[in-house]
């Protein structure tokens, strides 16, 4: 590790530990009734899930000089956890989704599902950026930054077309929470794949990022789905119908589209990618 890497490592350790401490402190001390324990449990498990996803990626799919180096694995784990927690602030700024206010403060289950999707989506974008060989941590941040930028953009487009985030936080529409939570995760999967790959140059990273194009039709589908449900909500009699089945159906479909679009473009060169895609493609 060079001096800059040591500095980034130290900053990441401080940032990750501090933010994780604040995360659990709020979960533990916020006064919720026993029936809201599920909220606390879900939030408590999210950092563990992020840790597991990042660790798996680093051990199996990361650069050849990282997979067997425990210091670099630790380095990228702390960097990744800092990345996820800091970017939750962007989720609040751009999507008006707050794990503190909506989930813990207002006990909003719809927001819990959306925040879960956003948390995992952010984790997968960062993990995707770790896939492939590269010269340093900065190319991971660059590729993940591209993914993050596109992820925020497509979700803002979704909100522009459907006011989805207002329906989650103000209307507490749990069905909308399921669909949008799945979209946040699915778009994270597609853009995580787009951020993956061996490093060649800044401009080539942008060109290779274009394999994330399936996120555009997925966004269009999600807008149409949300507008369909908005039109149903205006009909008060029909609004009494149960949307659980339909919402779960759409959520699963978004995730299947995301998985399909990942399999559609297997990563070249590294033989491990072939092993990963073998169960899906049979090739």
């Amino acid at each position: 590790m060079d001096n800059l890497e040591v500095l980034v490592f130290m900053a990441s350790i401080y940032c990750a530990c501090r933010l994780i401490y604040l995360w659990y402190k709020r979960i533990i001390f916020t006064w919720l009734s026993e029936k809201d324990n599920g909220i606390k449990l879900t939030l408590a498990l999210l950092p563990a899930a992020a840790f597991a996803i990042i660790l798996y990626t680093l051990k199996v799919l990361a650069s050849f000089d990282v997979v067997n180096d425990p210091y670099y694995i630790l380095f990228y784990i702390f960097l990744g956890l800092s990345w996820v927690f800091v970017n939750l602030l962007l989720v609040f700024i751009f999507f008006d989704l707050s794990w503190i206010d909506d989930v813990l403060g207002n006990r909003n289950t719809a927001a819990l599902i959306a925040i879960t999707g956003a948390f995992l989506g952010l984790t997968i974008i960062y993990s995707g950026a770790n896939v492939g060989d590269g010269p340093g941590w900065w190319c991971v941040i660059y590729a993940a930054g591209l993914g993050l930028f596109a992820w925020i953009l497509v979700n803002l487009v979704l909100n522009w077309g459907s006011r989805a985030f207002e329906r989650i936080t103000v209307n507490r529409d749990i069905h909308c929470g399921i669909r949008v939570g799945a979209f946040l995760l699915a778009s994270g999967l597609i853009l995580g794949r787009a951020s993956a790959g061996d490093w060649t140059s800044f401009s080539m990273t942008v060109i290779e990022f274009l394999v994330g194009w399936p996120v555009l039709p997925l966004t269009l589908v999600a807008i149409l789905v949300e507008r369909y449900y908005i039109s149903k909500e205006k009909d008060w009699e029909r609004a009494r119908q149960n949307h659980w089945f339909g919402s779960i159906y759409w959520a699963v479909l978004y995730l299947l589209i995301a998985v399909f679009s990942i399999v559609l473009y297997p990563l070249p060169e590294n033989p491990i990618y072939g092993i990963i895609s073998l169960p899906f493609t049979g090739v």
């Binding site: 206010d101 207002n106 909003n108 936080t169 103000v170 209307n171 008060w236």
Partner: peptide, 12 residues
């Protein structure tokens, strides 16, 4: 607005 019921909820 997140702290109070939505218009849709009130109408319902």
């Amino acid at each position: 607005p997140q702290d109070m019921p939505s218009a849709a909820y009130l109408i319902k």
